[in-house]
Write a protein that binds this DNA or RNA. Structure first.
Lengths: 224, 224
DNA sequence: GATTATCATTGACTTAAGTCAATCGGCTGA
DNA sequence: TCAGCCGATTGACTTAAGTCAATGATAATC
């Protein structure tokens, strides 16, 4: 566990003693696929790191439409907001796959932060990074149309997977639609349109980028 | 300056010595109305506190549409993201009024954070709070329609101004539209509609809430 | 291995909100 | 004082994207 903690972004570069302290307060918990980890408004008495599996953070409207904020995988922390501000979670979390999580209880953790400036700086970096992502998401939702958001996401996946012009959608189309702030029907139409107009070729969840420059322009301008 | 710093949320509850240290690295800078403080992509070598005046943080699309992220007034910090993560600003900042700002240079400030856990915890609280706000904004943009966002904003102003059912829009209608992710024409129509349907009465920038329950439901459901 | 669910796709239609254009009023500055 | 601008409002129109519905295609479960 100490070794694993030291390999996460959040705790990288920390002294062994501090990692052992963290390990001392950590608890491993498991959630089955589709299980709720927490809901919006719940008291937050600590936060989580994904050890194995995949977790979805999302909001839901009264009539059931969902907006995904994040998909987190191994090594990534989530649920920190109520640890430091207010107390309730601002969104919902469910396991997308059967997952093992590391839970870090609030009060013990804050004591460690107070005693360890490097940890505090790592946390500040993590939250700042998250703010940057949210800024991009607000920009996309407000100033770009669906094809632009989709193009940006494809370029993001291509970069992340570093497999040249070949990439895999890592989510079901329904989940991807929810991440992009739209619905499956619209996503389906837009993928077809990108293919029809020669930006990509598409078979199932596998996509090949044909016109990277065009996609980049589309992501930038935000519309056809 | 030391006294003023101690009264900001970010530095409240801190020891005098630490406030003096902060004061030692702080510089006061002035910006005229409409002056640019920084632009998206600029290197961030420090962050700011509003001493007097009002600052707008926003993004802009290639064809000139603007989305406001925040309006900050006296005592509020902005521009922290590149201090802790990456290096460039994710958005633009301009002075809405002639303003005096306190600038805190990155490297000196980080040294103080590393030496002062209370400061680190205050910062973590501030960034967490900002994440909570962004979560609400994403929720609003993605899952609520314009009338719902407007209703939520009116209720927010009413609470903030604590003047019963009477409230003032603190921005021009154009700026308010940009904050709500819409355009002035649409905002104008929606304000008329809220009045026509008996939720509010409206004269210029003064609004009286007539049906608070109705507004709350509208803000919750997100649409008529 | 059969039977449900769930997911993806397509077509026809509706609708919220944006665009374009015109008007009015109030400030601002020469 | 007056010309010129910016902000707000309203009307007519367009459009991106959502809704509803039907069909196939998987995939999950007993």
């Amino acid at each position: 566990m100490v070794k694993w903690l030291g390999e996460t972004t959040l705790f990288s570069g920390m002294a062994d003693q501090h990692l052992r302290d963290l390990s001392g307060i950590a608890m491993v918990v498991s959630y089955k696929r589709r299980a709720t980890i927490f809901s919006e408004g719940d008291q937050g008495n600590g936060f989580y790191l994904v050890k194995e599996g995949k977790v979805k953070i999302f909001m839901i409207s009264p009539d059931g439409k969902e907006q995904i904020l994040h998909i987190f995988g191994p090594g990534e922390p989530f649920g920190e907001v109520p640890v430091f501000a207010g107390q309730s979670f601002p969104a919902h979390a469910v396991a997308l796959e059967t997952s093992r999580l590391v839970f870090l209880p609030r009060d013990d953790f804050i004591a460690l932060v107070a005693a360890n400036p490097a940890l505090a700086l790592n946390l500040l970096a993590a939250l700042s990074q998250r703010l940057r992502q949210f800024t991009k998401m607000i920009d996309a939702l407000s100033l770009k149309e669906v094809p632009g958001r989709l193009a940006a996401h494809l370029l993001f996946l291509s970069k992340k997977q570093s497999a040249g012009d070949q990439l895999q959608l890592e989510l079901s189309k329904t989940q991807l639609a929810s991440l992009l702030g739209t619905i499956p029907e619209t996503l389906s139409r837009m993928l077809s349109k990108l293919q029809r107009e020669g930006f990509i070729t598409l078979e199932g969840a596998s996509i090949a980028i044909v016109d990277r420059e065009g996609l980049e322009e589309l992501a930038e301008i935000g519309k056809f």
